[in-house]
Nucleic acid binder design. Sequence first.
RNA 1: GCGCGGAUGGCGGAAUCGGUAGACGCGCGGGACUUAGGAUCCCGUGGGGUGACCCGUCCGAGUUCGAGUCUCGGUCCGCGCACCA
Length: 813
Amino acid sequence: MDTNAAPVEPAPGHLGEYDHAAVEARWRRVWAERGDYRTDLDLPDRPFYNLMMFPYPSAEGLHVGHIIPFAGGDIYGRWRRLMGDTVFEPMGFDAFGIHSENYAMKIGEHPAVVMRRAVANFRENQLARIGSMFDWSHQVNTAEPSYYRWTQWLFVRLFNAGLIEWREGAVNWCPSCLTVLADEQVEQGRCERCHTPVQTRYLRQWWIKITRYAQEMLDALDTLDWSESTKTMQRNWIGRSEGATILFDLEGCRRKDVTVFTTRPDTLFGATFLVIGADHPELEDFVPPERMGEVNAWRNKFPPTAAEPDFSIGMELGSSAIHPLTGARLSVWAAPYVLGGYGTGAIMAVPGHDARDWAFARAHSLPIVEVITGGNVDAAPYSGAGTLVNSGDFDGATSDDGGRRIIARLSELRRGQSSVQYKLRDWLISRQRYWGPPIPIIHCPKDGPVAVPEEDLPVLLPDVEDFRPRGTGLSPLATVEEWVNVPCPKCGEPARRETDVSDTFLDSAWYHLRYPSTDFDDVPFDKERTDTWLPVNMYIGGNEHAVRHLLYARFVMRVLHDMGLVPSPEPYTRFRAHGMIIMDGAKMSKSRGNVLNPDEYIERYGADTVRLFMMYLGPYTLGGDFRDKGITGMTRFIHRTWRATQLATGGDVTDDARERRRHRLIKQVEEDVAELRYNTAIAYLMEFARDLDHESADGTARRIDAETLLKLLAPFAPFVTEELWERTGHDGSVHERGTWPAYDAELAAPQRATVAITVNGKRRGELEVDAGTSEANLAALALGHPRVVELLDGREPRKVIAVVDRIVNIVTG
RNA sequence: GCGCGGAUGGCGGAAUCGGUAGACGCGCGGGACUUAGGAUCCCGUGGGGUGACCCGUCCGAGUUCGAGUCUCGGUCCGCGCACCA
């Protein structure tokens, strides 16, 4: 065969030009008109809820990074549909929140106006073009009253269940955003949105008691089919740690005693002082009355949320504590290095065996005692295990055993017990901002905080002109007198509305419940619909939401399940975190100025090409480097498919080798798509398309191979495959449910095998054999191989290892 | 600091249970067709020698007939958490 000959081209015009813009516009229109992607939610055959994290509609629009979840999730959904599932794939908008509000302020427009414009742009100009089969008849928008009415309903239900509390606490205050931030919105002491150093304020706020579910949520992680990285992050965030609580008596202050938490009860005899968190809500109770003023002045002097720990900051309070076993008198300190919000907010300091306590003791000339052998505590803290010394009766015990015995002794004295603590904190949901759902509470002078009756919901967000935050600790809503003043729902006396709005994460914590029920306005989620569709079968999104959104959503689902309102305690059966797309080795972000708009790529190459290209960049769950150079490879692939499938008109249907090749392809693509290994699935399709193209050129290409290629490619490139399906004479859609080709495992298995021959581990030849040729036969064939005979030169091999279909290794002396 | 990933040609990445390293694509080289091509198609492409040979998967040890893959030690990169007692 002349290898340089170009394939025979058909007469010009025969195939038509591939015009991606025309093809995609046409099928977008046809699909919309026919309602191909409207799901019958009431009579699903095999319901499959395929969800992708919804975006917040920023004014900048989508960037190429968004294609990853939206196209990647859609490919999976389209595949499930071809496999026979009734796939529900909705999309919506996380439209409330500080981010949208800040942008509105920047451009001096009302957030509602900005939001409506951004949503329209996202939906009509961007999401609609990427070829995902979103069912827009069930769109969700968290900023619409028809949605946030039910967010408020959820708040009321949580409140009535005793899971929401109004209490004072040290909170993170962003002096630029002029609002409270949750702990997880603070990054290294700075606001995650504007990077301003965060301050601490003491305010009365609304908290959701998520900590009650810490253990349950930790345990249930084992039952979830989620990305391991995500589960690990949740485990770390929940942060279970085991240890003991120990009671110390106090003298010289209002409090009689204090409980501390430690993970090292074996070091109890090394405790030489106590430290109370500087942000402890009841710090004053630890201070002798005459020193109260001095301590408060000190406490207000420094920002407790410092970026870098500073162990020189601390103050001796003047009261003292009594060691529960030795009776020794220990000094009591306050310092910011101890967190008022974790454990009991107070610690016993064991400077010999804890690095932080050691640094503090050194800075303040406090005694350091060795109670565990293994280091030199004068030179450095030793935090490993060892043998107890200077510990009275417990000397000589190991750390483990000593710890257990000390807890037992404390227990007898009613001075301590083993204990479990979690890093997870309660969820602070108050925001002193405008652009969110008003918290549905009315404060009555007589009845205290009263939930707005469910029939009075929604509490509409009043339309105010000046929505900018005040910085007073009060939301802009507080200035709307006619809105704030209402009668108490309980007693009818004059009362005032809560003026804070709730955290955006409350909106997104339950949106998966709303999608199937958007056509119900009397309930947040219809029972039957919810039982049919929940939990979500597949959820795809970024790992940046691993611990907040995903944890809150799990919490809400669990609570609703305990209330008997939803069929499962977990919202998402399967979750996969997609990888991050980087650009020139750097994360894509606005601040780097390397955010790419997908519109121009779709315009230029078409959505099919862009989808394929993005999925081909690297392993889906690891991400990859975006360099648009390689996109031409995808254009070639689609052109090749365009040509090859239209020219494959007949062929020998019974051709055994080609039939085996076809079955093998189906198996490979199916197995890869099931595990989101899109890059390798595409590689197999390209290989197949290349072969088919060559066969088309010499007129032997089989129609069934073309059909198979179109079916397998359909989830990746929905437009062009649909067009070609029609052009190759088919009625109906290539995406029709349940039409994925089946493969025969026997046919998919290779029939011939190339077996390598190695001598002492070095490759010296190969054998072409029937697949499954026995080890004995392989060994015999290998020993008869001329090259092997030559190398052995009459010597007897010491050992011959043969592995069926793989290798023969001959070992000589 | 702690936790979790990762390191393979010029580049992105393949490689099942430990069994032919480099699938597929980009780029590059050569060719075909063209007035031209940054269009399209075909062939080649880890490095070195250029005869069937040697060297090659971050570095160093180890286990094994055989290691990209397993074990131990180290380096570098990314992500997450970061005073959590």
